[in-house]
Design a protein around this nucleic acid. Sequence first.
DNA 1: TACCAATCTTGGTCCAACAAATGGATCGAC
DNA 2: GTCGATCCATTTGTTGGACCAAGATTGGTA
Lengths: 244, 244
Amino acid sequence: MAANSKGNETAPDVSPSTVSAVDVVVAQLRSLIADEGLKVGDNLPTERELCVRFDASRNTVREAMRILKAYGMVEVRPKVGATITDNRMARAFELFSFNTMEVSRKSFADVQALRDLIEVRSADRIFEMMRGQDIDELRAINANLADIRDIQEASEVDYSFHRRLISILGNNAIMDVYSVMKPIILRIMQKGKTRRTFMTETYFEHEGVIDAMAARDRLAFEYRLRNHLMVGFKNFSEEMEEKA
Amino acid sequence: MAANSKGNETAPDVSPSTVSAVDVVVAQLRSLIADEGLKVGDNLPTERELCVRFDASRNTVREAMRILKAYGMVEVRPKVGATITDNRMARAFELFSFNTMEVSRKSFADVQALRDLIEVRSADRIFEMMRGQDIDELRAINANLADIRDIQEASEVDYSFHRRLISILGNNAIMDVYSVMKPIILRIMQKGKTRRTFMTETYFEHEGVIDAMAARDRLAFEYRLRNHLMVGFKNFSEEMEEKA
DNA sequence: TACCAATCTTGGTCCAACAAATGGATCGAC
DNA sequence: GTCGATCCATTTGTTGGACCAAGATTGGTA
């Protein structure tokens, strides 16, 4: 058993002020997983065993475990222990499920600017890559806006439309970025809108974008798409104003 | 199947993880933030005050705080306390980055395309936002290429240059994306280059970009920067060919 | 063999204490 | 009076220990 410890092993180096014991344990746990070649489904040692192995108190180990749990890397069950999982994606979405805490205004603005970059400024490449099937599917997706039952569903359709649009680029990195931003994008879409707004304005704006694509009119595409994005952000800003 | 056990009737079903005390505190913290209308920058009560307010032990409060910290919702400093932040997007991207360890050739191409989008296609905004200090700092960073000792160090400087460049946009989402892509970007930069290449070609290409900024010549900026990115990727592609 | 109870294990929670860091107050010098 | 150094109190960081509840294990019994 680790006696008094406290002094810890002989490793005074590094800047100790910025590195907390919990962070060290987190790093050690990562190393442990990597070194042991642990895969999803395997179990970590018990908390008490980790204490002696890392020479840390149980509370410290538990706080480190909380971090891994929050990251969706492990799943802890009483009596069973910590099982390695890979729910990081789901966690990423949960980050924004805290509807109690509003996503900051700047976050919205930044995301919207990035969307403009991705969707509008790559218009040339979209036009270069797009096929007839892309346009057909976009129309099919947009048609779903007629049947939406609530805002939530509408924003999902809206998101699908834009996701399908950039999928034309065939760029996985961009798709990944879009996936991560999805929770925020959904919120932007929902802000200041009603079910009716989606079924009319949003629908027609999308149609306009598709029409521009079908006509291979790049300038119209850019103009309408950018305008569409701006409208969404304007709605959002107004609602923020009212709240304040 | 998992032994049902738990003869208890009418279990609240959903939320299988049983409501642990930590989860309760997390929920209470969320309510607290919402009810008090706390914004980014505000401070939460001290741990001990939260203990009495939520009737929980300090360990429980701390574990709950670890979760919020891991989610990028609060930032805790000794003596200062927990300050509300909104780094959730950065966390989301971090989580996501773990999945992209498998870097295929297409991944490189996709990342490079995204870099083109971010750096070159936002030239107008860069020119709109940039100040004299930005140019000075870019020159200072690029000057470091003269002292680099190895490829690793050189690529770090190279990355810093580009990161500083896009920081002019003042867009956190874009900065987060760039941070996530850093490992891949570094590999792209290192491919097909030598220490000498960095000290000569890369250095002068960067200087050319800075000169264009100083002269407020946007077309030259776009041309040189895009060319710079293409050169880097061309080197990379050639080395990939040889290896294959 | 099948079932059931006692026991062990393990995560969940709490407590008390000390260390380290830092913001703020106090006090002194110029 | 202003500035700076020093001291103090507060707060987070960490530790070790304790107990509990429930699942897992074991062993006994029918």
